[in-house]
Amino acid sequence: MTFKLIINGKTLKGETTTEAVDAATAEKVFKQYFNDNGIDGEWTYDDATKTFTITE
């Protein structure tokens, strides 16, 4: 399955996707992406659209 990440950061904005077997696996991938890029904020997940959103 394809999961999308929408980034609404102070310095970084955009979208990316990842292929994962489930939302929990995608969450781990995206959290690592947050850490690697110094993004910290509030994030949500919409199961209907398989979209994670992080807002700094």
Results as ranks from 00 to 15, higher is better:
residue 36 D to R: 11
residue 53 T to P: 00
residue 17 T to Q: 09
residue 25 T to S: 12
residue 29 V to C: 07
residue 47 D to Y: 06
residue 56 E to G: 05
residue 15 E to F: 13
residue 29 V to F: 15
residue 30 F to C: 03
residue 54 I to E: 00
residue 41 G to H: 09
residue 56 E to V: 15
residue 10 K to I: 15
residue 38 G to R: 09
residue 13 K to M: 10
residue 12 L to Q: 09
residue 24 A to K: 10
residue 40 D to H: 13
residue 18 T to I: 15
residue 39 I to S: 04
residue 39 I to R: 04
residue 40 D to F: 14
residue 20 A to G: 03
residue 37 N to T: 13
residue 1 M to H: 12
residue 43 W to H: 01
residue 2 T to V: 13
residue 32 Q to I: 07
residue 47 D to S: 12
residue 48 A to M: 10
residue 36 D to E: 12
residue 37 N to E: 11
residue 4 K to M: 06
residue 44 T to N: 06
residue 25 T to H: 14
residue 6 I to G: 00
residue 1 M to L: 12
residue 26 A to T: 00
residue 15 E to W: 14
residue 26 A to F: 02
residue 9 G to K: 10
residue 30 F to P: 00
residue 14 G to E: 11
residue 31 K to I: 10
residue 32 Q to V: 07
residue 39 I to T: 05
residue 3 F to D: 01
residue 14 G to Y: 15
residue 24 A to C: 10
residue 2 T to Y: 08
residue 49 T to G: 03
residue 27 E to V: 05
residue 51 T to A: 03
residue 50 K to M: 10
residue 36 D to P: 07
residue 40 D to G: 08
residue 40 D to S: 13
residue 5 L to I: 06
residue 43 W to T: 03
residue 50 K to D: 01
residue 36 D to I: 12
residue 16 T to F: 15
residue 51 T to L: 02
residue 37 N to L: 15
residue 31 K to N: 03
residue 22 D to F: 03
residue 27 E to L: 15
residue 28 K to I: 10
residue 33 Y to S: 04
residue 55 T to D: 05
residue 28 K to F: 09
residue 51 T to K: 02
residue 23 A to L: 05
residue 46 D to G: 00
residue 35 N to W: 13
residue 5 L to Q: 01
residue 8 N to V: 13
residue 21 V to Q: 10
residue 23 A to H: 06
residue 40 D to M: 13
residue 37 N to D: 05
residue 33 Y to D: 03
residue 1 M to G: 08
residue 9 G to W: 13
residue 18 T to D: 01
residue 26 A to E: 01
residue 4 K to N: 05
residue 24 A to M: 09
residue 7 I to H: 03
residue 28 K to N: 07
residue 43 W to R: 00
residue 55 T to Q: 06
residue 15 E to S: 10
residue 46 D to W: 02
residue 30 F to V: 03
residue 31 K to D: 01
residue 19 E to S: 10
residue 53 T to M: 07
residue 44 T to Y: 09
residue 17 T to A: 07
residue 28 K to W: 10
residue 33 Y to H: 05
residue 22 D to A: 02
residue 11 T to G: 08
residue 8 N to K: 10
residue 42 E to L: 12
residue 1 M to I: 14
residue 14 G to P: 05
residue 16 T to D: 04
residue 16 T to G: 08
residue 31 K to L: 09
residue 14 G to K: 13
residue 26 A to S: 01
residue 12 L to K: 07
residue 14 G to T: 14
residue 33 Y to K: 06
residue 17 T to C: 12
residue 48 A to F: 09
residue 5 L to R: 00
residue 29 V to E: 06
residue 9 G to Q: 06
residue 36 D to V: 11
residue 8 N to L: 13
residue 18 T to G: 03
residue 7 I to M: 07
residue 43 W to A: 02
residue 29 V to P: 00
residue 55 T to N: 08
residue 35 N to L: 15
residue 9 G to C: 15
residue 23 A to G: 03
residue 8 N to C: 13
residue 20 A to W: 02
residue 22 D to G: 02
residue 50 K to G: 03
residue 35 N to Y: 13
residue 14 G to S: 12
residue 51 T to D: 00
residue 56 E to N: 05
residue 52 F to H: 00
residue 28 K to Q: 12
residue 48 A to Y: 10
residue 52 F to Y: 04
residue 20 A to L: 02
residue 35 N to Q: 14
residue 2 T to F: 08
residue 47 D to N: 07
residue 24 A to W: 09
residue 13 K to G: 07
residue 10 K to R: 12
residue 20 A to Y: 03
